[in-house]
């Protein structure tokens, strides 16, 4: 399955990922990015990883 990781030191709380995939990403009230437990469309998640302006997101492919 596709898993995504966020580097919170790099994240600038741009919300670009949330804009593209609100089912997977959410900035909380403090502007800190939270990964939601939903199982989103891998293509959309890959697009968010590509579009993240700060390079804070990485895909970690895990074989189960």
């Amino acid at each position: 399955m596709t898993r995504v990781e966020v580097d919170r030191d790099r994240c600038i709380s741009s919300g670009v990922c949330e804009h593209l995939a609100p089912e997977a990403f959410e900035l909380d009230d403090d502007g800190v990015l939270q990964l939601l437990p939903a199982e989103p469309d891998p293509a959309v998640v890959a697009e968010a990883v590509r579009a993240c302006p700060s390079g804070a997101l990485t895909l970690a492919d895990r074989a189960h």
């Binding site: 600038i12 709380s13 900035l27 009230d29 502007g31």
Partner: peptide, 15 residues
């Protein structure tokens, strides 16, 4: 930049 951006970003989240 990182410090100020983190402060103001709190006020500009999509939510």
């Amino acid at each position: 930049h990182a410090k100020i951006r983190r402060i103001v970003a709190k006020a500009f989240t999509p939510k």
